[in-house]
Amino acid sequence: MNIFRLVGDLSHLLAILLLLWKIWKTRSCAGVSGKSQIMFGLVYITRYLDLFTNFISIYNTTMKAIFIAVAIATIYLIYFKFKATYDSNHDTFRMEFLIVPVGGLAFLVNHDFTALEILWTFSIYLESVAILPQLFMISKTGEAETITSHYLFALGSYRALYIVNWVYRYYFEGFFDLIAIVAGCVQTILYCDFFYLYVTKVMHGKKLSLPA
């Protein structure tokens, strides 16, 4: 464990708790892409199947359990409890356009052709594109609530910090996992224009609005 990965994990935890809190407090999931949340749920479930079989540390097990629980709770709030506030007209990104190619790629490019490893690889690839429906929805509505932009900033920062963690681990531990690194770079690149808007607007107290 290193500081970059720890801060990255905490930023990730902050992001998902922030989103859950926003939906619960405002009793509304307006501006939130349910499709992205479904894909994140899929990411955690397929990645953490080893939750009970492969004990790494208390921290690792606890965080995996929290991520899965918060993801399921968020999906429940969006599609059941506050379903009336779900903006399905703007959440129109076709998930199958992401899940099918990612599933195929996981079969072709992986470290080990076993069920668990292919599911882990699927999860890594899916996570890199899972935010697309959310970013697409913001581009359609032309704006995002400030709390949603904080969620996105924390979520985008987590994988950016993981990239720093991988550089650190390469130089100090001789460890690198090319699949995670390439997917992590793609994931972080997808946030770049959002990061620019966040820094230039939200940090100056303005609302996040895309140029019409």
Binding site: R5, D9, N54, N60, M63, Y170, F175, D177
Partner: peptide, 10 residues
Amino acid sequence: TLQDMDHDEL
């Protein structure tokens, strides 16, 4: 370099 199969990262 090591490609550890039991993924220790979240």
